[in-house]
């Protein structure tokens, strides 16, 4: 299992203030990594830098051995990095099925797609994803009518449809009920091994259920890294998370 993603001295600075400050991070293929840290630690910004949504001010993003720093978003996606946003982003005016069909990006060329009257491009894969996210009954529904949890699952399904090698998930359980969170962790555990996942999360119960390795960010730097137990007992981590009370009580 080689390194699939490597951040080298990654930096994003506004004026003199660095939101992400010479961050070095490595993610192995097939691993489920959780990225945690207090508000403003630079977690979402890091995801933005990896996916090209924001321009870096220094450092490099190496994906699968190649430097992808500064590429346009859609080019990075085509290299195999999928992203789920913090605020669920689906196409509200399209049906669930159409959302997934748009996500099925076999050929991104507009003229080629004019000739495609689609319907099932890859039925097996389509059914597998619909089954995974559990929206089989809702395929004809407009995405705008889905519940919050269903919207999150739909977006996860859309990203999965692309079969990315690396999946970045920004707070996938935000706003979910306990049952929904549990179902999401089941989805993630099914993805484990076949996909590499980097998950930004605040919900520690959820992190405990899914994480292999946890990276703790603070002030744009890597503060600590290790298993749940290692991170929990790290004095530096305890300090940034609500004084000495520790990470377990933080939400």
């Amino acid at each position: 299992m080689g390194i699939i993603l490597e951040l080298k001295d990654l930096t994003k600075a506004y004026d003199t203030y660095a939101v992400v400050d010479h961050l070095n991070l490595q993610v192995n293929e097939g691993e489920l990594r959780c990225l945690i840290g207090p508000n403003g630690a630079g977690k979402t910004t890091t995801m933005d830098l990896i996916t090209g949504r924001q321009k870096t001010t220094g450092g490099q993003v190496i994906f699968d051995g190649r430097n992808i720093t500064g590429l346009k978003e859609h080019m990075i996606v085509r290299r195999g990095i999928g992203r789920k946003f913090q605020v669920p982003a689906v196409f509200k005016d399209l049906t669930v099925r159409e959302n997934l069909e748009v996500a099925f990006n076999r050929n991104p060329d507009p003229f080629a797609n004019m000739l495609m009257m689609f319907r099932r491009t890859d039925k097996a894969r389509f059914d597998e994803i619909v089954d995974l996210i559990g929206l089989g009954e809702r395929l004809g529904e407009r995405a705008g009518y889905l519940s919050h949890g269903e919207t999150q699952w739909l977006e996860i399904g859309m990203v999965l449809t692309q079969n990315p090698r690396l999946l970045l998930m920004d707070e996938p359980t935000a706003g979910m009920t306990e049952q929904e969170t549990h179902k999401t962790s089941q989805i993630f555990n099914r993805l484990r091994g076949s996909h590499t996942l980097v998950v930004v999360e605040h919900d520690m119960t959820f992190v405990r259920e899914i994480a292999d390795v946890i990276s703790v960010l603070h002030m744009g730097k890597l503060l600590a890294q290790g298993t749940m137990a290692e991170v929990e007992n790290d004095p530096k981590v305890r300090e940034v998370y609500l004084g000495a009370e520790g990470i377990s009580d933080a939400t």
Binding site: G82, V90, F91, D93
Partner: peptide
């Protein structure tokens, strides 16, 4: 469908490649 999806959420479409 892709054009209409871009109307709804251009960023999401971009992040689908």
């Amino acid at each position: 469908t892709i054009v209409q999806a871009s109307r709804d959420d251009a960023e999401r479409v971009r992040f689908l490649g």
